[in-house]
């Protein structure tokens, strides 16, 4: 299912005007631009965390947002996976607890089994009972990604996934991230201000400058 974005949102000193598409089938679309260009704002509109003034956001034949028809699917029903720049792990919950939060359905046993599966797939064995502040940046990112993917999202949004990571580790984590994303078939948008990173990881680059994305 292709993701189509065509939205406008006006703030006091900033106007977002974004029109682009993101293909599915394992390709990554990069949203590339300097900080303050409106990258995160665009992601939040797609996830339903911010409401645009007008336009539409479509996923396949479905509208997630359409100002003309008054459609605005709430964030919790959009099935949009969002990897936050700060990872946004729940600080009072363990690694296991955080991943379990991503589960929408299933009995207690099924959930526990799925969580255990994710723990293995993301090489988090032994860290199940740790809390986020006891993990390294790379481990936090793996937990956040495991929590996103266990939720079975239709779209995946990655907000500057490597900005908090040391330069030496970055390449290694990029490879690792792409490995974990290999099984994800929906549209994936990567937000970044690093041109080299974008060129390495994505198959399509959308430039965003001063709120303007085409």
């Amino acid at each position: 299912m292709m993701l189509g974005v065509d939205i406008r949102k006006r703030l006091d000193d900033f106007t977002l005007d974004a029109k682009f598409t993101a293909q599915d089938g394992g390709s990554v679309t990069a949203l590339f631009g300097p900080s303050g260009a409106g990258k995160t704002m665009t992601l939040k509109c797609i996830a339903g965390l911010l409401v645009p003034d007008e336009g539409c956001i479509t996923l396949g034949w479905d509208s997630l947002y359409e100002s003309d028809r008054g459609i605005d699917v709430p964030a919790r029903d959009r099935r949009v996976g969002y990897l936050f720049q700060s990872y946004a792990l729940f600080p009072t919950m363990t690694v296991e607890g955080n991943i379990a939060c991503g589960m929408r359905t299933g009995s207690r046993e099924e959930r526990a089994e799925r969580v255990a599966e994710q723990i293995r797939a993301f090489r988090l064995e032994g860290l199940e009972k740790r809390r986020p502040h006891q993990l390294s940046g790379g481990e936090q990112q793996r937990v956040a990604l495991a929590r996103c993917l266990v939720n079975d999202p239709a779209v995946l949004l990655l907000d500057e996934p490597f900005s908090a990571i040391d330069e030496e580790l970055k390449r290694e984590l990029e490879d690792e991230l792409m490995e974990h994303l290999a099984g994800f078939a929906g549209p994936c948008i990567l937000v970044s201000h690093d041109r080299a990173e974008v060129e390495r990881l994505s198959s399509k680059i959308v430039e965003i400058r001063g709120g303007h994305a085409r």
Binding site: A75, R76, G81, F90
Partner: peptide, 9 residues
């Protein structure tokens, strides 16, 4: 944190 929870349903 609240936004992350919202996207998780």
């Amino acid at each position: 944190l609240a936004d992350a929870a919202r996207t998780l349903g």
